[in-house]
Amino acid sequence: MTAPLRAAAFAVAAVLVFLLPGWIGGVHGAFAVIAIMAVAAYGLDIVVSDLGEVSLAHTVFFAAGAYAAGLLSTRLGAGAWVTLGAALASGALIALLLGLVTLKLREFVFSLVTYAATVVAAAIAHNWSVLGGSDGVSGIPTLDLSVGPLHLAATNDVELWPVAFALLLVTLYAIRQFRRSRLGAMAMMVHLNPRLATMSGIEPRRVRLAVFVLSAPFSAAAGWLYAYQRAYVGPDLFETYFLVLMLTAVVLVGRRRLLAPLIGTALVVGQERFLSFGGDVNAIILGGALVIALAVLPGGIDATLRRLVEPRRATLMGAPNTKPVVQP
């Protein structure tokens, strides 16, 4: 497919997806949540797929965005654009602090410290009265992004869906541009061959920090919109559900494929919304999906389907390795 054709196909698909909840009817809320959680997962995606580190702190960025929206809108009466700026800034700031602390750490030590950060953030959210304590912050006003004569208010899920969809499109574009950027290329190099990266004059620590800080605003923006969608923020945002959801979305379909986290989120949230078996069974399904995606289906659904669809090409490509080498 040529580039213009591909862009046109993407545009048509985007329009169809945008109109889909209207045709089905009554599912704007589920679609908005899918878009929001997918955006949150994209933040984690560039850290897991491109940088090769497992951050367990993206729920903190997600919650930071949500709390920024909740606190500023209820306590100071701030508008949605102001809270969006605050959400992005607070996510990036927390990521910067955490990134500096974990600068020298890699692999499971990095993951454990980010996990510890999540647990500590949850403890603070539960206990600090400024953040609303265990009760959280309720009574968040509806989203109003009106600028001048342009009226952009979302009083219900039907009106919120275009905003969530727009946020998703912006995120998709940003992730695509990131993967084509110098930073994206450096991240892959640091991930796949740190020594070569260092020899090429790349500072791996600086790249890691940059990608980590860059990833946070995506999750924070998702949290920002989630706060308006739910009209409530509380310490439940730190529950492992969100963490496991984001991780499953990232690994379920395949790594470093632009639409994979979106499809993964749609599968998980879709199951919970339209085919729910109750919270406990849903948790078993979600955790099980994560286990199966990595332990049984290496490369995710995408790679497994490819292996099934193109077995001939796979055997042809594998043939030279399996053939015994004839010794003279």
Binding site: G52, E53, V54, L56, E107, F108, S111, T240, Y241, L243, V244, L247, T248, V251, G279, D280, V281, N282, A283, I284, I285, L286, G287, G288, A289, L290, V291, L294, A295, P298
Partner: peptide, 29 residues
């Protein structure tokens, strides 16, 4: 087991998190 032999620590971490989530569901159930 396959991940263990491959020493794929990143995947092992995520899989064990998945198991943790499943265990919560099982306990609730």
């Amino acid at each position: 087991l396959r991940l263990t032999f491959a020493q794929d620590l990143v995947s092992i971490m995520i899989v064990t998190l998945g198991f943790g989530h499943m265990m919560r569901g099982v306990a609730g159930l």
